[in-house]
């Protein structure tokens, strides 16, 4: 037996699963960050639309705050900003599954699945990447809102909590998008499903309008809307006197929601393989 084949036997990786999950997550997240760094326009492109909404709606609805019964403070731009951050996170993550579709259209997905790559890492790395993307984009939106005159009493702590909520929201809906990608394996179907889900979630929330001014059933439904959880947590945290029980409660719900969806989406790899 030659030295070469001896080496081959040694190169067989250890069968320990836990440590490879974290290492694989890091390697695969870096892969996506490299791609994003090579096309920075893509990162910025996703921010343009939210900024247009922010400035457009901000101007269009300035006097909303004067409606009797509006409980969201006296500056609509300040009310709107956390809503826009979450809308950006929601719409951005709806597209997350696209990278899976691309990997499937090529042989990249099949190569990963025939290697000892951790399935959990394949899922979580895309969630981490999407959450980082949201982080950068949210900072841009906050900066523009500040330039537009919005001031947030919650300060740095409030902003960090808003960012955390946006990242959790991103991770949960990215997991959903990934699962849809694994099951549908088709970009058009993926976008169709995403739109079907995201648009109603956006309107059944207080992102654009205080739900105490909407029909009662909207406020009632919104309580069960994960998107609304993120909006409430972020908006409360940016306020002058946050209701901390509400902030942490909603963040906790989001965290559980994210974990459940990530787990379910990882299971979708099995369905993908079964139908291969």
């Amino acid at each position: 037996m030659t030295a070469l084949t001896n080496q081959a036997r040694v190169a067989a990786p250890p069968a320990t699963a836990r440590p490879s999950f974290f290492r694989h997550t890091a390697y695969l997240t870096l892969r996506q960050l490299r791609a994003a760094a090579r096309v920075p326009a893509f990162v910025v492109m996703n921010v343009v639309q939210p900024l247009i909404w922010l400035l457009l709606f901000g101007q269009l609805f300035t006097s909303v705050v004067d409606i009797p019964g509006f409980t969201g403070g006296d500056n609509y731009l300040e009310f709107l900003t956390p809503g826009i951050v979450m809308m950006m996170a929601l719409f951005g993550s709806a597209w997350a599954g696209t990278s899976y579709i691309q990997d499937m259209d090529r042989g990249v997905m099949d190569r990963f699945l025939t290697s000892p790559t951790s399935r959990g890492a394949m899922m979580v790395s895309t969630l981490v990447y999407q959450a980082l993307l949201t982080l950068v984009q949210s900072l841009i939106v906050l900066g523009v809102a500040w330039l537009g005159g919005a001031r947030f009493d919650g300060g740095l702590g409030g902003i960090l909590i808003l960012l955390l909520a946006a990242m959790l929201l991103t991770a949960s809906f990215s997991a959903l998008s990934n699962a849809a990608a694994l099951l549908a394996r088709n970009q058009n179907v993926l976008i169709g499903i995403s739109q079907l889900i995201t648009i109603p979630l956006m309107f059944l929330s207080s992102a654009l309008m205080d739900t105490s001014l909407s029909a009662d059933w909207v406020a009632e439904v919104a309580r069960f809307n994960p998107f609304e959880w993120a909006v409430v947590a972020g908006r409360e945290a940016l306020g002058a006197s946050p209701d901390w029980a509400s902030v942490w409660g909603h963040l906790g719900l989001l965290a559980v929601f994210t974990a459940v969806l990530a787990w379910v989406a990882t299971r979708a790899f099995r369905v993908y393989q079964r139908s291969t």
């Binding site: 892969r31 490299r34 791609a35 090529r106 042989g107 990249v108 099949d110 190569r111 025939t114």
Partner: peptide, 13 residues
């Protein structure tokens, strides 16, 4: 080792 019929490398890397 697995070399699929389709390209298995990532074009962005």
């Amino acid at each position: 080792g697995f070399v699929a019929q389709k390209q298995v490398s990532d074009p962005m890397d």
